[in-house]
Write a protein that binds this DNA or RNA. Sequence first.
DNA 1: ATTTCCTATCTTTTT
DNA 2: GATAGGAAAT
Length: 663
Amino acid sequence: MSAGFSIESLNKAQRKAVLALKGPVLILAGAGTGKTRTVTCRMSALLENGVKAENVLAVTFTNKSAAEMAERVMGMVGKKRGKALTVCTFHSLCLRILKRDIESLGYKKKFAVMAGGDQTGMIRQLIVRKGGRQINLKPGEVMSEISKAKNAELPLSGIEDELIAEIAVAYQNELRAQNAVDFDDLLLLGERVLREYPEVRVYWQDKFRYVTVDEFQDTNSLQMKLLQQLVGEPYNICVVGDDDQSIYGWRGAQVANILQFERFFPNPKIIRLEENYRSTQAVLEVANSLIRHNLGRREKKLKPTIPGGDLVRLVSMPGDQEEAEWIVSEIVMQREEGRVLEDFAILFRTNGQIRKMEEVLREEKIPYRMVGAQSFYDRKEVRDVLSYVQVLNQPELDIPLLRILNSPPRGIGNTTSMAALDWSREKDQSIWETLIDGDFLFQVSKKVRNSIQTFTSQVEGVRRSLIDGMHAGIVMDQWLREMDFHEWLMRQCKTDKEKDARREGVSTTIASLTEAIKKGKSLSDFLDQAALDAEKEDDLEKKSGVTLITLHAAKGLEYPIVYLVGLEEGILPHKRSLEEGTRDEERRLLYVGITRAQEKMTMTYCATRVKWGKEEACEASSFIGELNPDWVHEEGYEDIMGAEASEEELRGFFSAMSAILDD
DNA sequence: ATTTCCTATCTTTTT
DNA sequence: GATAGGAAAT
């Protein structure tokens, strides 16, 4: 076998997984047990055994892990064959399926994906229109109800809360009117088109004869149904996951999918990977002792291959300021001992906790990279630019058009856009059609008419030059200049830092547009990708420094030295999980956090923490009592500072000594 | 129509 | 302590 990997380098269980190519396979892979390695070797083995790369599909959960897996397989089987494989997320898979056949479901072929801020904005508007303001209804709540209903394949009108149901129905009508879909629709419609149209199903089943699903514990019931449609007999499906790392229950993930895999695909080969190559015994003992407290899991234990190791440290802090300062001082110290900044990661439960840490790192001039904070494509200026691109591509889309209509200000204010909106509703046409509608223009003031016509002819002019074959990146850049977009943007910024960030956001967006066009993608392709991508991958990978990351985003990653901060009741476990009775998931979250560490693990908790500008008292997390004390070393703030003080005294002593000796 | 100032709310986690 | 949306002033 001329495989790009050596079978000898795998352990027995891994080997078994790599060789089980046909039929359903369930790989239970604990943290750090060489899961990715095994999966990529297995895919490589498929190709070695004569399976065509075009017939192989790997589904992952994030774009990032898709990219990573694709890269690793390519490294094994060569670029040419690697490129023919399909490695993508559930959502982008459905996007592909729908691009081919969405017309069967009554949508027009060119549909848009609505996500992030646009979606929130739309819901917010509807809340106001339907009078949900008074009862303080939050967009997030409405969205999660809609999502729940869609994932359960229940009608939106059946949502228990009448007002939410009404808003949900209006939301869906609005999407439908705009020929747009949201994230859940992608899955919902993807599954539906496969189920209802045998020829579509056969096409995709025939294309993807070998399917692999990574992070299977995170799939929800809809994704499971999709898989059932996608994978036909003889069920060449391999799923990989770890029920102990299921941390997306709030998004509808069903641990049952992994616990009862055999219910969906008969007689699977079940393979357990339990030998951990990532962490020291100390780290694993603590992780195991914690996760043991969860009920209803597939019993398993991570077996260490690296005996001993430093004890896991548990440090109490007076406040979050001290917590941040102490961790940074530790990093500085260890860097002086030869550690590189990329070895360190600081893990958080919520994004809000990151701020303090950032502040201190900046003071100390230590570079850092953040993962899982605000999504690049959700930044204001980026969404503005993207809205412009959307309007260029398809002016009939109301949401992006409304967004840019008066930013920068061009004399088409709120009154006018509301009038246009009403008119478009009445005539059952898009707002763009209304703006070029003579009847509509006739009934507005001359001044407003002028402003509108200036704008619409601008759009038409720019669109024409696009059709003439001008480069979209250049056209967009020129147009932004023409309307003094930058100047307007800069005027809104208070600090220089903000200015830089905004400028960078705009130029990065234009740059990635330019790049996409260069690669031969259409504007629609570019916009779809922007909607599905949470992050701009390349920046994150390239940036160096200490990693700041949420526990959720950290899954699948590893770092030599890990600090896990804010181990406090109300944060981890999160207050809301206590209300919702999902404490087990919080425990898994902590488990994921601990198992990220290769060599050194430090956890901290504070007595007080500044929340919303106010100091609040905190209590140590109840999870702390569940950790095996044999492998934990507890320290107080006084101990650490005491040690440091005596070190200083010592230094003072030495300098005094040398002064004497110099004499 | 646009800017500016005030206030209520926010903090789980993400495709 | 930020930020978005609303009211008030220009």
